[in-house]
Amino acid sequence: MGALTWPADARPEVERLLKTYPRRRAALLPLLHLAQRIWGHVTDDAVALCAETVECSPADARGTASFYSMYHTHAPGRPHIRVCTNVSCQIRGADELLRVCERALGIKAGQTTPDGKFSLEEAECLGACDRAPLLMVNDDYVGPVDQGQVEALLKK
């Protein structure tokens, strides 16, 4: 149904993933990651392609993609900043950190700056409570941080 197909060099990986699990459906998450690596974010067409590949409904695949915060439904900025606001980080001032980021970048959480450079996201637990409050810049942890450090980091 979709207009999109897997590029030739990704096909072996798609086949490998489909064979890894006893049920086709289980390959949905790794396929969504693969699609995100190829197209930068999980576009509607990419989600429809993944759904077709594992034989589930597009609604199901889209629902799954929107459940996990590591899938981007819109093109993320470089850098993409995640601020954890779960319990450990929140106790140590994460809400304030998020507000500092929003003020400094002039955008709200979940948005991208108009020039497309920075994107900001309010994240669920990032699995590094010992370093709270914590944020992630692309794939790297930064923390524990205070407001001053964040402001300095964003200026860079």
Partner: peptide, 9 residues
Amino acid sequence: NGTLAFKQR
């Protein structure tokens, strides 16, 4: 049919 699914969380 599969029209419906949960979205977000």
